[in-house]
Design a protein around this nucleic acid. Structure first.
Lengths: 155, 155
DNA sequence: GGTAATAGTGAACCAGGTTGTCTATCTGTG
DNA sequence: CACAGATAGACAACCTGGTTCACTATTACC
């Protein structure tokens, strides 16, 4: 019959778990030829998706201003992960699309995350990992996107 | 016999769980008279502790430069959560200490986190929550402090 | 056709991070 | 005891990524 841990340990462990996975992802991505990818970029590229999007739309998806989205797009463009093209049917709009390099990052990330998950399963057990995921699903929002991640922590 | 979810769901759920707890903490802190507390501040004040510390030491604890620690201290000072005083035995040093207001934030946070944990326990069950915490302990660093939190995400 | 909404951009600002430099103050040793 | 080296704090310049405000160009609508 164990005593409950103090409540502050739970958020810390969740964050540390997240951080461990993300750090290992990026260490591996760096080894696989993407040393410049940052944690934020993966989320943003996921939000851009294969269809492409615009700065305004991306801002809405991520929960930041269109200007902030625009700045992030510029960064990704400099890194060669996305490219912009004018929309022929609405010349105000610029469609942001993933480049092959951007798609490559996402594909590699998916594989690496699967590997990392398997490593956790080896440590805590298959059953327990599935329980953990199922329990987290019960206490977190259904909509996995719309993370409001960029700049959330410091704001 | 369920199919394993894709690996990228795990970090997302961990982050969302963390975010839900932190958001609810700060909503409640705002209701209890601390509307200006930010997620980072709690971590930093916890790192400062009841003993007090210095900018250099705080930087070491948090894993950031002493200048960055100094800036954060300035912010907390402006908000009235900490105060600085020269060390009489070493006049180079300035000891940073929590004010009563800062102590109040930490005390309230501890209570709120306990309440939030109880709410999770009500949803997923006492046993399962303890399992979840135990499993996370197995896959995360022992040292809960030294989070390297400030600025980690964007860097 | 003229008004209103929308897309993108730029400027000014803020928070926090970095590195480099500088001064003041210990500390330890010859 | 003096001086060299380490340490604490502060300041400046710069980066990233966030904000709001203001502006232009284009499209949509009555």
């Amino acid at each position: 019959m164990s005593i409950d841990p103090p409540g502050f340990e739970l958020p810390l462990r969740l964050f540390l778990g997240f951080r461990v996975l993300i750090d290992e992802l990026h260490a591996e991505l760096a080894r696989q030829g993407h040393p410049h990818a940052r944690p934020m970029h993966g989320f943003v590229m996921q939000a851009i998706g294969t269809e492409g999007t615009t700065a305004v739309d991306l801002g809405r998806t991520l929960g930041v201003s269109k200007q902030a989205a625009g700045k992030t797009i510029e960064t990704l463009e400099r890194l060669g992960y996305v490219e912009r093209a004018r929309d022929s049917r609405d010349t105000r709009r610029k469609i942001v699309r993933l480049t092959p390099s951007g798609v490559d990052v996402l594909a590699r990330s998916a594989r690496i995350f699967d590997d990392l998950r398997a490593r956790w399963a080896a440590v805590i057990g298959d059953e327990r990992l599935r329980d953990l995921e199922a329990d987290l699903r019960k206490v977190t929002p259904q909509d996995v996107f719309r993370l409001d991640v960029p700049g959330w922590f410091g704001a």
